[in-house]
Each structure stands twice: as structure tokens, then as C-alpha cells.
Amino acid sequence: MTEFEPKIVAFVCNWCTYAGADLTGTSRIKYAQNVKIIRFPCTGRIDFMLLLKAFGEGADGIIVSGCHPNDCHYTSGNFHARRRWIMFRGLLDLLGIDVRRIQYSWVSAAEGAKWADVVNTTVTAIRELGPYTDYAKVANYLEKEANV
């Protein structure tokens, strides 16, 4: 059996983390290749449904990252996002969706090394947790029944 390679989706803001991830690359820092980065105008734009959609489409882990508090390009987008994440995390936890699979972080445009570290630690953590079969079973239950 081949080793499990986690599929990680990263929702990042254009102004800080995307630029930070770019810096990681231009600094020639090597990091795990499991992450697929999706660029958003702002963390305030990251709808909670997108996270569910990522899990539904087979992601094993999610990274959500944006500007540090007080650094938002739009002044307050990340403050709003933070409140939403606090509420969303509580709801997901109640519903039994594994919140350990969602890593939130603040990565600025100057923190290329931090981005590599965030990705690497997330990949390691998800590798230990294994594939997200609970959610995949629910997402694909019609197909499973058809196969039986």
C-alpha cells in the first residue's frame, strides 16, 4: 500500500498569505507539495460553505490564512473573518466535523518561512489523522450504495 498523501486545500488572502507563499517560493524554501492554494481577495470573503465544499470534494485538511489582525488591506476583513471562524468552529465541533483538520493562521507577506512551517506542520498532523473517511462516506454515500 502506498503511503497516504493528504490532500490539503489552502484558502488564503491575496494581500498577505498569498504574497507570503510567493515569498516562500522565491526564497527557494522547500515545503510539502500537498497543498492547493486558492487565492481570495480577503479572509472576510472566505465563505464558511467553501470549507464544507472542500471536505465534500475530498480534502483531508484545510488551511485558512490571511493578514495579521490590524494588517487587513480592507481594514477590518480579518476581524470579521475571525468572529465568523470562532462561531463556525464551535458549530462544526458540535456537529462532529473534525476541527483538527482545519488550520487557521495569520501569515504576512514577509513570512515566507512561517508559511512553509504552517503547511509542513499541517501536512504532518493530517498524515497522522489519516484520510477523512467519515466525511467522504457521507459525501459519496450514493455511489457507495450503487457499488454494493
Partner: peptide, 16 residues
């Protein structure tokens, strides 16, 4: 409303 406002000092423990 709670989610249409914010406080710069909102506390959480899960953001790196």
C-alpha cells in the same frame, strides 16, 4: 449583530 461587527480584541485560541 455579532457577526456584522467585531472587536479588535476578540480572543481565540486556535489561530497560529
Amino acid at each position: 449583530n455579532t457577526l456584522s461587527s467585531f472587536n479588535p480584541d476578540d480572543k481565540e485560541s486556535f489561530i497560529r
